[in-house]
Computed example of a mutant assay.
Amino acid sequence: MMLEDEIFRKYTVDWNLLVSYGFIKEEKGYRYVTNQVPGFKMIVFVFKDGHVKGTIWDTALDEEYVNYRIESQNGTFVSEIREAYIALLKDIRVHCFKETPFVSKQANRIAQKILEGYQVSPEFLWKRDPLSGVFRHPKNGKWFGIIQHIKADKLKNKAQGFIDILNVKLDEQCAAKIVEPGFYPAYHMNKKSWISVCLDDTVSDEVVMDVIRQSYIINSPDPYWLIPANANYYDMIHIFDDTDITLWKQSVPMYENDIVFLYVSSPYSSIFYQCEIVEANLDHVFENENIHMQKAMRLKLKKRYDISEFALERLKEYGIKSVRGPRHVPKALVKLLEE
């Protein structure tokens, strides 16, 4: 990798700052020239696509000096030239560039769109792989996207250089997507559930964001809960007579906007209410001989059911044999409860 590519790998140019630094605008970009090392002229060029290229010119010999690019050349003189050039590039980076999370323009655009749409920023989890960023679902921490910087030939046969890719989970949709340009069997992930997308503008941002949306949904926690209420401890008949809000014990991870169906125990053994969680994970310590509470949530009444409508005998038809603690609700039953 060229020195310039390494130093500016995760940076994008701020064009407004180049001129103030001393760059001269030309047809193909911006040029900066300095004679800070006696006998040598250092030239840095920023092309219109943001790519940076540099040369060092030996003014005495009137030819390009290249020894500083040869790693095996480590004598005192060449090392001084190399260090001075690297220091110049880093100074330009500080004053004219801004850091970005990823290498490619499309990867950075997609990261910004994910932030705007889902309020999720990438997490860089591996010191040995600082260019791989994971996007986690805010409710359960599951990965719904991973952007990685890999050798291009890992996906494209005989391709040169490096590329940014996005891994998303599409489950059974993988087979259909894999035939489309820019989509490949997942790199370093389960190929039955995940797929890789090249972030080299082969696939439009709109299509990339659509597969991200699908992956986000697939990785979302089930928002429908069936929670038991002991009729001996709570007045479940009148609990919502004077208000549509109640404070309720929360014993498992749940989130705002999740839907809770309150199942009242014997002698009723039936679902009484449908509620929405309006606040979750509240610190609320309460104890008596029957109730032990550390966390609570606020439930807002959405719907009442006839006491006999969703009794346990009917729930058994959907695989619910008992309700001893919070549990998810089968989709077929949710459909009925929502009608």
Rank of each mutant, 00 (worst) to 15 (best):
V278D: 05
N290I: 00
F45I: 08
E64M: 04
R324D: 12
R314C: 00
D171H: 09
Q112G: 09
N67T: 04
L131G: 00
D235N: 15
S269W: 06
K169R: 15
Y234K: 11
K53H: 03
C96W: 07
A111K: 06
Q173L: 12
F124P: 11
I81V: 13
R31T: 11
W57E: 08
I165E: 12
L199M: 03
P267G: 11
N140M: 07
V120T: 14
P185I: 00
V264R: 14
S104F: 01
E339S: 11
K331W: 04
V285W: 10
K113A: 11
S269L: 13
V13N: 02
K151G: 01
P253H: 03
V52T: 05
V252H: 08
D62N: 14
R314H: 12
V168P: 10
I217Y: 05
A60M: 14
G145P: 03
I92N: 06
V203D: 06
W225D: 08
Y30Q: 04
M2D: 13
P223N: 01
A107L: 05
D235L: 07
N35D: 15
L333Q: 12
A107H: 10
Y30L: 03
V19K: 14
K169S: 03
R213C: 03
D283R: 04
G182F: 11
R109V: 14
N230P: 00
A87F: 07
E27T: 10
S308C: 09
H284Y: 15
P138R: 04
Y21R: 04
S121D: 04
E6Q: 13
L337V: 10
V285Y: 13
L315C: 12
A280H: 07
Y263A: 06
L125M: 15
L131I: 01
Y65G: 07
M254C: 06
H137Q: 12
A84I: 00
A159L: 13
L299V: 09
K300E: 13
E64Q: 11
H328A: 00
Y305N: 08
S266C: 11
F162S: 09
G22C: 08
E6V: 13
I212K: 00
S220Y: 03
Y85K: 06
F162Y: 15
I217W: 03
Q73G: 00
L3T: 08
Y11Q: 02
K41G: 06
G145K: 02
Q294Y: 14
